[in-house]
Computed example of a mutant assay.
Amino acid sequence: MSDKKFEIVNGLVVRIFEFEHGQWQQEYPEPGESYHVSGDRIIKTENEHGQQEIEVYLKTPGSDTYYQTHESSSQGHDGLDLDHRDDHDHQETSDGDDNEHESYPFDTRVDGVYTVGDDEYHVINGQVFERETDGYYQTTDQQLEHEGQSHTIEHRYSSPDEETPQGINIRQEDGSHREVESPEHALAEDQSLARLYKAVFDRMPDTDGFQYWSERLDTGVNFDDVVENFLVSPEFINTYSELDNSQFLDTLYNNVLNRDADSEGHQYWSGQLESNTLSRAQIVQNFSESSEFKDLSAADVGHFIETAGQSSLTTDMIVS
């Protein structure tokens, strides 16, 4: 895949140069080809026999050459050149729609499924959704301000034809998504995490560990997975691994609730363990989220969260 040079006059590509056999070879746009200039990108669209080919070239920093970043193909739409607009179309398109169109290497006015490299986009009624393993993401015009940086808000849908988003996210530099929560949800999640430390390790969290797991929860890790990780830690194993179910419950009652087990409660949880209805991890989580333990730990948890500070991204950070 060779580099290219483009001669651009008044925003139009008039000549193309490709480096072959040790020198630059001059080419001209062929029939059926169109080139769209968008900042440092050149988007080439070619329609032939109902098939649409799209190539995206990005300018090499500090050079006048371009390298290819994406290549895709899809069924065309009755031979329509998706990157072409005549004067009439341009007059009827608002500036906002035109900017949205330019941000993608396909025409967002035409519904369909578009593949760009490894990415798949669905266009429905002019709305663009990027498909990911956990849903469909739509970029919005809202920004989230965090630690001096601006992040674009994306709405996540389970399918692109839903009216209400399932979640709010930002896309991080590595391409992963991070959840944006309501302040109330973020506080409740942090309280649960701090209580889990107290229930499993009989101590409040260390700040670094707490912030690590808090961010993991915001990037798709389930709370159940955090519990499982805590229960395979040396701290937990050293306390509980050698105990039978009865001893496990007795120790859990004393470490978490600061009291001996009542006979009814001990019998109930023993039955859950013996019948494999609940695992030890699930019982620890039940103890951690019990009303009794919430009351017992409220002061310590509140003091810790106030000291550690908020690590989750919340909706009150969003600006229009």
Rank of each mutant, 00 (worst) to 15 (best):
K4Y: 15
K4E: 07
N10R: 07
G11D: 06
V13H: 10
V13R: 11
R15M: 07
F17N: 04
G22H: 08
Q26M: 15
Y28R: 13
Y28A: 14
P29F: 00
V37P: 00
R41N: 05
I42E: 05
K44T: 05
T45S: 12
H49N: 15
I54E: 02
K59H: 13
Q68E: 14
Q68S: 07
S73M: 04
Q75I: 10
H84R: 14
H84M: 10
D86F: 05
D87Y: 08
H90W: 08
Q91N: 14
Q91R: 13
D97I: 06
D97G: 10
N99T: 02
H101G: 05
E102K: 06
S103V: 01
Y104S: 00
D111G: 01
V113F: 07
T115P: 11
T115M: 12
V116C: 12
D118G: 11
V123A: 10
E130H: 10
R131F: 14
T133Y: 03
Y136W: 09
Y136R: 03
Y137G: 03
Q142C: 01
Q149P: 07
H151S: 09
T152H: 10
S158T: 11
S159C: 10
G175S: 11
V180I: 11
E184I: 13
Y197N: 10
A199E: 01
P205I: 06
T207I: 13
R216V: 01
R216P: 06
L217M: 05
N229A: 14
L231F: 02
P234K: 02
I237C: 08
N238K: 02
T239M: 04
Y240L: 07
S246Q: 15
V256F: 04
R259D: 07
S263K: 14
W269F: 08
Q272Y: 02
N276C: 09
F287H: 03
S288D: 01
D295K: 07
L296I: 11
S297M: 05
A298C: 03
L313P: 10
I318G: 14
V319P: 11
V319E: 12
S320L: 04
